[in-house]
Design a protein around this nucleic acid. Sequence first.
DNA 1: TTTATTTTTGGAACCGTTACCATAATAAAA
DNA 2: TTTTATTATGGTAACGGTTCCAAAAATAAA
Lengths: 335, 335
Amino acid sequence: MTLTIKEIAKLAGVSKSTVSRVINDSEHVSDRARKKVKEVIQETGYVPNSLAKNLKRNKTDTIGVVLPKINTSTFSSAVEGISNIMYQKGYNLLLTNTKLNIKDEITYLKLLKEKRVRGIIFFATEITEEHIEVLKKIEIPVIIVGQDSSELLDYPCLIQDDFNAAASIVDYLVNAGHKKIAYIGVKESDVAVGKLRKKAYLKVLAENKLEIKKSYLYQGDFSIQSGYRGMKNILEKAEETPTAVFAVTDRLALGAIKFLKDKGFQVPADISVVGIGNSDISPWVVPEITTINYDHLKTGERAAEILLDCLDGGIHKTKEVMDYQIIERNSVRKI
Amino acid sequence: MTLTIKEIAKLAGVSKSTVSRVINDSEHVSDRARKKVKEVIQETGYVPNSLAKNLKRNKTDTIGVVLPKINTSTFSSAVEGISNIMYQKGYNLLLTNTKLNIKDEITYLKLLKEKRVRGIIFFATEITEEHIEVLKKIEIPVIIVGQDSSELLDYPCLIQDDFNAAASIVDYLVNAGHKKIAYIGVKESDVAVGKLRKKAYLKVLAENKLEIKKSYLYQGDFSIQSGYRGMKNILEKAEETPTAVFAVTDRLALGAIKFLKDKGFQVPADISVVGIGNSDISPWVVPEITTINYDHLKTGERAAEILLDCLDGGIHKTKEVMDYQIIERNSVRKI
DNA sequence: TTTATTTTTGGAACCGTTACCATAATAAAA
DNA sequence: TTTTATTATGGTAACGGTTCCAAAAATAAA
């Protein structure tokens, strides 16, 4: 049977109030009483019930996190970052994993409200009308991460500079002398990864007066496999073999490289490949993948910080853009 | 301002009790009352306070998860597995990330008790006296994952078959004709990964009357980098170059392969490398890494299931061993 | 219609804390 | 010593739900 404050009070020969004061390190407790109470707590192993406490105080120290998928390095690193900051500030994390299921997101948002979490970190892939509706009346501080919500919602958002990052790396290919650049991407309803990165690709090609061939374009999902298939597809369709491939994630790039090697192509001698995301394995494969580095851990940390500011009544609406760097390795040949 | 059940009652012209019955789908509510209450809830967007509910009911639907690190595929996959099962059963996950800091584990265990979580899934790396003490008096169902606690604690535990798995893959090397097999491992205080896998390596070598050279043994940490350094170290020290390397994780194997390639060795033509863990990238690098597959997602799911059984008053103490398979790819040369 | 039975309701106690207020004890000042 | 200020303490009312019980209303049986 779990002990309550009342029983501790009785054992220590004081009132509930005094025990409560000791637990919360309040003043106005005599040394004698404090010592006695601490002894009893130690002996009995009493642990206060935070449900009661939070109910009374009308707030919790829990932060809700809504994630589309947990077992990818992007998100798990971000969660690591969030937990770094939040635990240090005395908050803990209630995790919800939507498995890329939009409908679940709505459910989980409601669940977090039930739990009266102090704030919510929402990793968005898409923002639908329904999201907007639910988020608008949630009455809990929220920060949106990963998609630009600044025109839709009055919450702060934190995004990667997807457009410029993608433009930079495609630019890098062009500057290396490549003119036939293929594209392996994902569905455009994912604005950040699918739409913006593709848009940047198209823009850079157009700016440099390079032809945009339909056969150079492949749209898959987020799996490594999809990169493999994408590369296969492009090579089969294209009448002219591209000299470079822009994959919108490192995992897609890895899949593409694998296909090329399987078919006897040299990377980068025959075909260059770049990705985005700087996955932790990218420096360790051959060739080491040239990519864009986003610091997901830092993104998580920053998201946590912004949310904390909101809780302190600071920031209300901002749009913050995380920076990026090109990581030049050796999956690109200079022509 | 957040609404309470009282206000909903007033708006619907009924008592708190009736509103409560409607929320919980109890019987004994007239259709008229039920309809009215539902309307008001819909209009106002009322969401009940689960703190109050759980306090009264004296139980929560939250499962605590204690993790040593979240951003590695082992753990994030396991969490994915846990969440698959738990959400389906109406539980949610409170995540604590100890960042391999043993002291934090104790703190978090107490925190979870404060939160009155329904059960705890504890991913152990080491089990110290202090762990045992805290776990013994926690009064919450716990399942230990990853380390064999069956002789120390009265909780169920779920482990990988580390010894046999490692023995199998070293056996595989021996059967392929290798006689000079190096070892890249981690600290032995990690019983499962550090101690058992090394023990298996030593045993298989001994059984086959192969010499165990000190220069063939390297102990690092869990980073890819460590595999790289380990390989370097072994090659520098050993008077005779090994023909095969057993790395205790795929990440270590990846690092080792990278070093070999950097130095102009062919893998597997010159030196074979195997790992354990079947990381998601292992099939996609060149050479594809021969390894042992543990299904971490399934491990997470199974851990969740066992815990659920405990909650239902079923299982109390078991020791369950997850199985494994050798995944034969092409990082090993048959001599 | 009256009585018995069932269904629907509201009232109140309770879950384990905190926080306010009044009182008691102690220390300081007169 | 008495008065005043200060500190320590206990009692009690919340917090927002659930749940039991008794009363009221509706329905069925006599």
